[in-house]
């Protein structure tokens, strides 16, 4: 019968100080390949729609006429399929996640290519 087996561990915890990452105060560093959110370099995009077709969660809508690429962040499961399938490699996975939102619509990230400058509607930026 052994008691206080845990004592060593908890005392060490007490004296070593907390292991907490103190997240909001201190930013978390992510690895390069962390799947955070999908980004599109809209200048390169050819609006082929392959990504939208492949998306398992129907998060992407691409409109060739309006030259518009929209991702619904609340639908995207960051599976990377679109990135893999993109013929011009304009899609990439950013390593920071998309922050929580209170309204559904604010999670819609629209990117439209209008010559000469790209209009970016992204609440995160």
């Amino acid at each position: 019968m052994r008691i206080f087996v845990m004592a060593k561990t908890v005392l060490r915890n007490l004296f070593q100080g907390p292991a907490t990452l103190m997240y909001p105060k201190r930013k978390r560093v992510y690895t390069a390949i962390t799947r955070g959110r999908i980004e599109n370099e809209i200048e390169k995009c050819i609006f082929c729609g392959l990504c939208a077709k492949r998306c398992p969660t129907y998060a992407l809508t691409v409109s060739k006429e309006n030259k518009e690429w929209v991702v619904d962040r609340l639908k995207c499961c960051i599976c990377n399929l679109c990135v893999e399938v993109c013929p011009v490699k304009c899609l990439s996975t950013h390593n920071h996640y998309f922050s929580p939102v209170t309204e559904r619509l604010t999670a819609l990230c629209k990117k439209r290519l209008e010559a000469p400058t790209a209009v970016v509607v992204d609440p995160q930026q």
Binding site: M6, T9, V10, N13, A19, Y30, T31, I33, T34, R35, C77, I78, C79, N80, T93
Partner: peptide, 28 residues
């Protein structure tokens, strides 16, 4: 305290996942 300690020790494994696959839970 045991629960906390166990889940604390689990984090290094998740870090390995994140570094190698990009996801913590769903590896894909």
């Amino acid at each position: 305290s045991l629960f906390m300690q166990a889940l604390r020790l689990r984090e290094p494994v998740l870090d390995i996942f994140e570094e190698t696959t990009g996801g913590r839970v769903i590896l894909g």
